[in-house]
Each structure stands twice: as structure tokens, then as C-alpha cells.
């Protein structure tokens, strides 16, 4: 199959199963999960704690590997890739936004945004320019020299968003991106997600357990006990 062809799905997950061993007990975190996500969709993943939604996100994010099943990202078979290949996929195709922001402490916003480009051999001048553009996109260009502890939670999350954007990844994965934010700031952050999704055609998949946040997405997938129990558009 040719990469980038129009009829290709961004994400195809087939019978994904993940089994953790906790002592003597096998925990089936994911049970034969099959999902297809097209380029440009916005998806909210919901479910109670332990439902498998986080495990699912980690596998989608190439941070973890499934026990069985197949995962194609832009038709690349992720299941057979090694550590460094997965790192390359994360670098090129996926932007992460976390609940806890996960910015490098004692490092300026600009340098935080530059971080992903440090690992794909982009010249320092281009890094600077692109990081600045990404910061502008989240409306934080005048705070580029601030360190995370000098920024509010919402601002930190916007820096994290800029970092997720900077390598022009087609997919942004957000794990409870508003979990640490108040309602007003949450709305601001969600507006940015919506804007990125509609204007730049970036696929956004976010995990949340707040229906108000899930409402920003056009599609909602519900997890329970490792199974998909609902998929509504």
C-alpha cells in the first residue's frame, strides 16, 4: 500500500490485547480491541479507572507494546518495530500532551518546545524559528524565555501543546490534558485542540472522564474492563 494515499486510515488497531502480569495473576488490560481512526478525526476516550483506556493510549503512543494484535499507524506495522524505531515514530508522527504537563524543569519554554527537534537533526536556527512559531500558535510567544515554574498551569499546558505541534505530527495524543486545570482554563485549552483539529486537520485523541471535555470531540469511545463498550459519533 502507498503511504499517504487518500483512502488510508491514520490508525488501524486489530484485536489488540495487553496482558500484565501482577505476581501470579494475569491482568487483561485490553481485550481484542479493534478501532479505526481516520485522519482529521477528534476522538474522546472515556471510561473509569482500570478500564484500559490509558493502556490503549500508551500503545497508540508507541510508549508500550501490545501482547497480541496489530497496530498500523499510517500503514506502518508498529508491532514489529524496535526501541529506536518506536522513538522515531513518536518523534515524527505523534505529539503528546500529559495531565502533569511533563515539561523539563529549569528550562525555558522555547527550549522545551525545541526538545523534539533535538532528536531529528534539525539545525539550531530552524529549531528556534519553528519553536517560536509553535509558541505563537498557542498564544505564548511573549513568554518564550519563562521557565515552567514561572508559568501558570494553563500556560504550561500550552507550552506542552506547542511541543506536540512542533514536529508537524499528524496525531496528537492527550492524556487527561485538563485534569490539573480549572474550568475556565480547561475551556481555553480545549479551544486550541478544536482549532488545531479543524484548521490544521490534526487528528486529536484525548482521554478524559469529564463529559464536558469529551463534548468537544466529535467521536467518543467508551472503555470498560478492557473492552470497547461504546463508539458514538
Amino acid at each position: 500500500m502507498v503511504q499517504g494515499s487518500s483512502n488510508m486510515s491514520l490508525i488501524q488497531v486489530r484485536e489488540l490485547t495487553k496482558i500484565y502480569r501482577l505476581g501470579d495473576i494475569d491482568v487483561r488490560a485490553l481485550n481484542n480491541v479493534s478501532v479505526t481512526v481516520e485522519q482529521g478525526e477528534s476522538v474522546a476516550i472515556m471510561g473509569p479507572s482500570g478500564s484500559g483506556k490509558s493502556t490503549f493510549m500508551h500503545i497508540l503512543g508507541c510508549l508500550d507494546t501490545p501482547t497480541s494484535g496489530r497496530y498500523f499507524l499510517e500503514d506502518e506495522d508498529i508491532g514489529y518495530l524496535g526501541r529506536d524505531e518506536l522513538a522515531r515514530i513518536r518523534n515524527q508522527k505523534i505529539g503528546f500532551v500529559f495531565q502533569g504537563f511533563n515539561l523539563l524543569p529549569r528550562t525555558s519554554a522555547l527550549e522545551n518546545v525545541e526538545l523534539p527537534m533535538l532528536y531529528n537533526g534539525i539545525s539550531s536556527r530552524e529549531r528556534r524559528e519553528r519553536a517560536m512559531m509553535a509558541l505563537k500558535e498557542v498564544g505564548l510567544e511573549d513568554r518564550w524565555d519563562h521557565q515552567p515554574n514561572q508559568l501558570s498551569g494553563g500556560q504550561q499546558q500550552r507550552v506542552a501543546l506547542a511541543r506536540a505541534l512542533v514536529n508537524k505530527a499528524p496525531l496528537i495524543l492527550a492524556d487527561e490534558p485538563t485534569g490539573n486545570l480549572d474550568t475556565k482554563t480547561s475551556a481555553e485549552i480545549m479551544e486550541i485542540f478544536v482549532k488545531l483539529n479543524s484548521e490544521s486537520n490534526i487528528t486529536v485523541i484525548l482521554v478524559t472522564h469529564e463529559p464536558a471535555i469529551a463534548a468537544y470531540s466529535r467521536r467518543t469511545i467508551k472503555f470498560l474492563d478492557g473492552f470497547i463498550v461504546g463508539d458514538t459519533r
Binding site: 503512543g61 510508549l63 526501541r83 529506536d84 522513538a87 522515531r88 513518536r90 518523534n91 515524527q92 503528546f96 511533563n102 515539561l103 523539563l104 524543569p105 526538545l115 523534539p116 533535538l118 532528536y119 531529528n120 511541543r163 514536529n167
Partner: peptide, 16 residues
Amino acid sequence: TREIGIRMAVGAKTWD
């Protein structure tokens, strides 16, 4: 450890 995790998440390879 967290910093290493962040760097790995954004694409740092083993040798990086």
C-alpha cells in the same frame, strides 16, 4: 527519571 521519560516520549533514542 521523569526527564528521561519526557525525552524518550518526544523521540530520544537509546544513544541520545
